[in-house]
């Protein structure tokens, strides 16, 4: 994010910098150029995120295509209720982060902070639910990779089906990497909430909030695809 060094440019020796707004970095001509650049940069970063996950989706598609029965059996042990709740939680957090941008565009800092904190709370809720889901699996010996040793009723029969471990490996890797992105997103949102509270942003300049919002929506979109593929079909 292209933000922190804003004041540095005031010392520039060149006269053309005289009446620049303080958030404008010296090498940009206008705020608009800076904003457009930041946004294009963010979109490029987002497609790298999409391609990062795409490899996991490809792995999923390949193994599902080869072992449909194992995937169906393994998938049926995932808790679709918790998955659905988590989907709604993330969708709501997408709404609140969109609202935070709406409010900062209207220069309503208080509501911006509230929306961001709501997003943060929902993200936290998502992780808590995910934690309980993981724990429920670990209790029954469902681990990624070599440690996979299902025990207990409703799980033992999985041991007899080949390629079930593949499903859980992919499940844990996909949701794990997604979870890491949620944690990073929470960090960014906290930072934005704090800065919005401090009064860094206004309807003149709120690029970091907008970029954080974009990032958060991508995290949501990835879950939108993960949820039906892992829990339902």
């Amino acid at each position: 994010m292209s933000t922190e060094t804003a004041p540095a440019t005031t010392e520039s020796v060149e006269t053309e910098h005289d009446h620049h707004p303080s958030h404008l970095q010296h090498h940009f001509v206008s705020s608009e150029q800076q904003f457009d650049s930041a946004k294009l940069g963010m979109w490029l970063f987002l497609i790298t995120e999409i391609l990062l996950f795409s490899a996991l989706f490809v792995a999923y598609a390949v193994y599902r295509n080869w072992n449909p029965v194992a995937f169906a059996e393994a998938s049926s042990t995932l808790d679709w209720v918790l998955g659905s709740v988590n989907t709604i939680v993330l969708l709501t957090s997408s709404l609140t982060v969109a609202l935070s941008i709406h409010f900062i565009q209207k220069n309503d800092r208080k509501k911006t902070v509230i929306s961001l904190l709501a997003t943060l709370a929902l993200a936290g809720g998502f992780l808590v639910i995910k934690y309980f889901e993981y724990m429920a699996k670990f209790e029954h010996g469902i681990y990624p990779g070599e440690a996979f040793a299902p025990t207990g009723s409703g799980y033992e029969y999985l041991a007899a089906i080949p390629y079930v471990p593949q499903f859980f490996s992919i499940y844990f890797v996909m949701t794990g990497i997604h979870g890491v992105h949620v944690v990073i997103g929470m960090g960014l949102i906290s930072w934005m909430a704090w800065r919005a509270h401090r009064g860094d942003f206004s309807d003149e300049w709120y690029t970091p909030v907008e970029l954080t919002g974009l990032y958060w929506h991508i995290v949501d979109i990835i879950w939108i695809f993960l949820f039906p593929l892992l829990y339902l079909v």
């Binding site: 620049h20 303080s22 206008s30 705020s31 206004s202 003149e204 300049w205």
Partner: peptide
């Protein structure tokens, strides 16, 4: 942000 005046419209 004090001296930002004409950027917003753009």
């Amino acid at each position: 942000m004090a001296h930002a005046t004409d950027d917003h419209a753009a």
